[in-house]
């Protein structure tokens, strides 16, 4: 496949076209992914999550520039919500990353959620696979900040970073349940605002709590991304975390979990596709009618639909 060959040579146009393919689920998407799979598994995938407005994009911008200085190639997938009503989206994460556009060693792609929940886009994993195969040393996935529903990022990344800012009040409380699960690194951005110390203390408490169950204690960093303050500390923590994952055998475990999640999603998608494919959709409508007319129940009908 020509595009795949070009991708493997680092061609950005090819990468962009392939991501569109998988995102649009066009006819060549499945073949592309099949072919790419053997080239994946070499990149460190980092997830960045947190409420809207905390400065995630600015932080991604700074982290990317810092990794570039270390000679690493960086892929970025930034996700913004798709409007439920119109299906359209304004994808504005590039605004904070304009200088990365012309950097040879960076590839940045914005994606709309397109109806997917969990803070990531439907084809996020597929897009990271493309960037992985392209030879990116790191791929940063910036999610939609959507409260507790961000937990799906956990299944797609090796290292997750939770970004907060002072003065968000109750939201931190609301987030706590999520924080316990995600967040290998905590970042308090906009560190020049009042209330930093309090927030840092709260996050440290959470970190202590997490350290009781695992060997990795999430570090808490204060940054001012717009002024490039605190970036280097976050970068070191990212590297430390990768080291920890590898040494502790946790990396293998996460890869397995990631693969399990990926496989599950693919199976689900395939099942769904099969359930609605061709004459099946007529069958679906027929069964639906029967359920509505109380001739059958949805549980039996579902099994019937997936028979054969």
């Amino acid at each position: 496949m020509e595009l795949v060959d070009r991708l493997l040579k680092g061609d950005k146009r090819a990468a962009a076209r392939l991501i569109s393919s998988v995102e649009n689920e066009d006819e060549r998407a499945a073949e592309v992914l099949r072919e790419l799979y053997k080239y994946t598994g070499n990149t460190h995938i980092i997830g960045i999550t947190g409420p809207p407005g905390v400065g995630k994009s600015s932080l991604v911008d700074r982290l990317t520039r810092a990794f570039r200085k270390k000679g690493k190639k960086v892929g970025i997938v930034a996700i913004d919500p798709t409007s439920r009503f119109t299906g359209g989206a304004i994808l504005g994460d590039r605004i904070r990353m304009t200088e990365l556009a012309t950097d040879e060693g960076v590839f940045m792609r914005s994606m709309g959620t397109r109806g997917h929940h969990g803070g990531i886009a439907k084809a996020t994993t597929e897009a990271t696979m493309v960037l992985d195969a392209m030879g990116m040393d790191l791929v940063i996935v910036e999610t939609v900040g959507a409260g507790q529903s961000q937990s799906e990022i956990w299944e797609c990344v090796h290292t997750s970073i939770l970004v907060e800012m002072p003065g968000m009040g109750d939201e931190i409380q609301a987030l706590k349940a999520g924080i316990l699960e995600i967040g290998d690194i905590f970042v308090v951005n906009k560190g020049d605002l009042a209330g930093v110390d309090q927030l840092v203390k709260e996050l440290e408490n959470v970190a202590e709590y997490k350290a009781m169950e695992q060997k990795w204690k999430p570090p808490v960093h204060v940054t001012i991304a717009t002024e490039d303050k605190g970036t280097d500390e976050v970068v070191s923590s990212i590297e430390d975390h990768l080291g920890y994952l590898k040494e502790s055998g946790e990396y293998q475990k996460r890869e397995e979990e990631r693969t399990r999640g990926e496989f599950t999603r693919i199976v689900q998608a395939l099942l769904l596709k099969k359930a609605f494919a061709g004459e099946k959709s007529e069958k679906f409508d027929q069964l639906l009618k029967e359920i509505i007319e109380k001739k059958t129940d949805p549980f039996t009908a579902a099994e019937k639909l997936l028979e054969e």
């Binding site: 304004i90 504005g92 605004i95 904070r96 717009t226 002024e227």
Partner: peptide, 10 residues
């Protein structure tokens, strides 16, 4: 003083 960057709010 440094430079300011627009927030580009929608």
């Amino acid at each position: 003083f440094g430079e300011y960057k627009d927030l580009a709010i929608f």
